[in-house]
Each structure stands twice: as structure tokens, then as C-alpha cells.
Computed example of a mutant assay.
Amino acid sequence: MKLTGKQKRFLRAEANSMSPIFQIGKNGLTEEMVREFEDSLENKELMKVQLLQNTEWTAKEAKAFIEEVSGITVVQTIGKVLVLFKEAEEDKYRRYSSRLPKQN
């Protein structure tokens, strides 16, 4: 899903008070881990992931990998924290996508 600047701004504001749910450590980032992110996002739509100091991945590399192997959009990177978004398929889980500003 391609997001506009206004939509990304809305999602960043919503994620501001969240704590990271997943951590990427010395084992790195794998496709299996990204699938877990997708499963979690199906119920949450928006979450944070933290890169630990002992990982060899940079935030830029992690962002590119996550977006390449999945339908997840990385809304923001702040230092070693990524904000991930994926629209839920079921209406009952659309906590954020139902409130996104409309695209022009």
C-alpha cells in the first residue's frame, strides 16, 4: 500500500507512544521473522520493531529487506527503531487504516 505524506504523518503520531514489540538481535533479520511481523500486524496494523546493538543490520537495510519480502510499509525509522504498518484484511482489526486521511 502506497501511503501519502499526510497518512504517514498520521501513523507516526499514532505510533509515538508505542513501545517496540519485536527486537532484531545478533541472529539478524530473516524472512520467517518478517512473516511473524505480518501475522502480528494482521491484528495490530501498526507496531514498532527495535534493532539491538549486537545486530549487523542497519535501519536502512532492515527497512529495505522488510519492504522487499512482504506487504509491510515502513512508515518511519528513528535511530534503531522502525515503525511498521500493514492494513488488516478483517474490518474488526482496522484500528488505524479506517482513520487514515483519504488519498487525493
Rank of each mutant, 00 (worst) to 15 (best):
Y93E: 11
R95F: 15
T55Q: 05
K63P: 02
K60F: 02
E61S: 10
L82T: 05
L82A: 07
T55S: 12
Q53N: 14
V81P: 00
V49E: 09
V75F: 04
K92L: 14
W57M: 14
L52T: 13
K44A: 15
R94M: 13
L51K: 01
W57I: 07
V74N: 08
L100V: 10
N43D: 09
W57A: 13
T58C: 02
V69K: 03
V83R: 05
Y93R: 08
V75C: 04
A64Y: 03
A62I: 00
W57Y: 10
A64C: 05
T58F: 00
N43M: 11
R95A: 12
T58Q: 01
E56W: 00
D91N: 09
K63Q: 15
M47L: 14
E56G: 02
S98P: 02
E68L: 09
E45Y: 03
S98I: 12
E87L: 10
K60G: 05
V69Q: 04
Y93S: 12
A62L: 01
E42R: 10
L51C: 05
R99C: 08
E90I: 01
N54E: 15
L46I: 10
L84K: 08
L52W: 09
Y93F: 15
Q53G: 08
R99K: 15
K60R: 05
E67V: 08
M47W: 05
